[in-house]
Design a binder for these strands. Structure first.
Lengths: 337, 337
DNA sequence: ATGAAAGCGCTAACAG
DNA sequence: CTGTTAGCGCTTTCAT
């Protein structure tokens, strides 16, 4: 691996000049620039990002061209959509992204945050476990540009990109009642997660709006993972007065519910209607095709990066909260009762 | 963010001593060590990984505690399994991993490789697009510890972790013929990918073993993505002499095929049996539950990291090729003909 | 327009 | 056992 010195020697200039060339400084003479560029090509030189980051540490402005992305659960297709959006937009703007998946493990999340911090990243995209995540709060206080995805931070002035969870849930449940359902169950994700709470609220609002009495026996609290969808669906379906419709709080819960329903030999939508929060691009591959609330994960990811880059350029601009609309994708999993 | 100097001043020692403490050098006096550790705690000091990486550049042995992972397609659940295995094992060994998803885009793959290289990583895990990937070959020649996942490199002495694609495909197709199928179609992933070629060979071998004539009209070549499963299934099913069974070359193709089959209103397995290469943990959530060839992606990921760490420690040990067995998960998607 | 030199945070000889 | 010092590759004043 060649370095600035090698190039400088080859081009017969100083390393400062080479540095200027690779940073597109306007002050370099055209002839010199060409000479340097030739040398760069000849030696197949790529500036070492580590050296660059370290040098940049001195100046205020972050310019290491690397951002961090901390995701709670990469098994969840929603987050892989987000990841794709993030990567695409970052790629277009010549940023590299370090992705960390903490698999719902708080200790691990904290470790990754520490690592990212000590990697001198320019900014951070994060979906905090809960609104009071002290490590993340400390990071924003330290001045690191941050934007939150999917979940915000309490009492902290930070950009946030999320979907309209309340409305999404409201529409889903309303759809179900319009179809004639009265006993609509809800399986919530981890309730500490603001997103889950919002969805639960949307569910309750819809019930209320349509004059259906809320029945606590019809809502179960899981942990946002496949397994909880699986076991809680069984509890619901084997109860004395089972629901006729099921609204699942996220992707993985939906899949778990589907697993249990098929295993019990029940027919969708005849025996039980189901509508999931979170769509998947292969939802039509399910049988029957799944009716679902779609969050635009990809777009959310893209936009989050856009906000982050703006924040990096302008650390003092006021924080914004961007709410993406959800869309109810009506397919075949919830016929009339 | 405090640094070595701050800690040294606080503990009233030199920065060298602090460095020794954070690197667990055995030569430090116990009293001094305690003093330093107190200072570290007090200042909430975390060693800057960038400075460390740069300093380490001098010495031969990689010790920056960071590895790269370059994946062709994070949409594919198989690769997220691999990613999880990689992350878990790396985490257990205090390595951070930079994950890059090049989304089947060669240019992007090359860029990421460049970035990773200039990040001075200790080693690299990669699933090369094809066996002749020149950038990866150049990297191994440069001495960077590398292990390949899922696909190897031509004429290059490099560790490789993969599944027994031939056997997996062979067993799947054999299962189908035992069920009485004679017209078994195969939708291949990108054929430049050695993995796809192996699976195709397994398919052919099984046919031959069971004395079924190979019919070129029954095999379609896609690009390993959802869309190709979708359209090629339609071609197959609308052909004059459609197959009675379908073997799909990967996860995404399976999902695409399922989408088309349901859209055409066909019954699985009555109208068309299907068996997919790649299992998903939620395969039982499909209706009917999918019969599939399972590759142990998670274990492959873990083992790949283990090999990589060994390679980092011992750059000259001979390369190994580790083949993981596949497992045929028989469920309900391919009844007797 | 270009070069010389200081310094980013850290490690690793080398002295003592 | 501990301190001093010379870099690692790069950016950025400050001169020229």
């Amino acid at each position: 691996m060649s370095n600035l010195n090698d190039v400088a020697r080859e081009a017969e200039v100083s390393i400062a000049t080479v540095s200027r060339v690779i940073n597109n400084s306007h002050v370099v003479n055209v002839a010199t620039r060409t000479k340097v560029q030739d040398a760069i090509k000849k030696l197949d030189f790529h500036p070492n990002r580590v050296g660059r980051r370290l040098a940049k540490l001195k100046v205020k402005e972050g310019e290491s061209k690397i951002i961090g992305l901390v995701l709670p659960d990469i098994s969840n297709p929603f987050f892989v959509d987000v990841l794709k959006g993030v990567e695409d937009f970052a790629y277009d703007n010549e940023y590299a992204v370090i992705t960390c998946n903490f698999a719902q493990d708080q200790r691990r999340g904290k470790l990754y945050l520490d690592i990212l911090q000590s990697e001198s990243i320019d900014g951070l995209l994060v979906a905090p476990v809960h609104g009071g995540d002290s490590k993340v709060i400390q990071l924003v206080k330290s001045g690191l540009p941050i934007v939150c995805i999917d979940r915000g931070l309490l009492d902290t002035n930070v950009d946030l990109v999320l979907a309209n969870n309340h409305k999404g849930a409201f529409e889903a449940v309303s759809h179900l009642v319009k179809l004639g359902h009265k006993r609509i169950a809800f399986i919530s994700g981890l309730i500490e997660n603001p997103t889950s709470a919002e969805r639960l609220n949307g569910y309750k609002s819809a019930l209320q709006t349509h004059k259906i009495r809320f029945d606590a026996a019809l809502v179960k609290y899981g942990n946002s993972m496949y397994e909880s969808g699986y076991v809680l669906t069984e509890e619901l379906l084997k109860a004395p007065a089972p629901p006729t419709a099921l609204f699942t709080g996220n992707n993985l819960i939906t899949l778990g519910a589907l697993g249990k329903i098929h295993q019990m030999g029940l027919n969708i939508p005849k025996d039980i209607a189901i509508i999931g929060f979170d769509d998947m691009y292969w939802s039509i591959s399910l049988n029957p095709p799944l009716t679902a609330v779609k969050q635009p994960g990809y777009d959310m990811g893209r936009y989050a990066v856009e906000l982050l880059l703006r924040r990096i350029k302008d650390p003092v601009r006021p924080a914004v909260k961007v709410v993406f609309d959800t869309e109810l994708k009506i397919r075949k999993s919830c016929g009339a009762v």
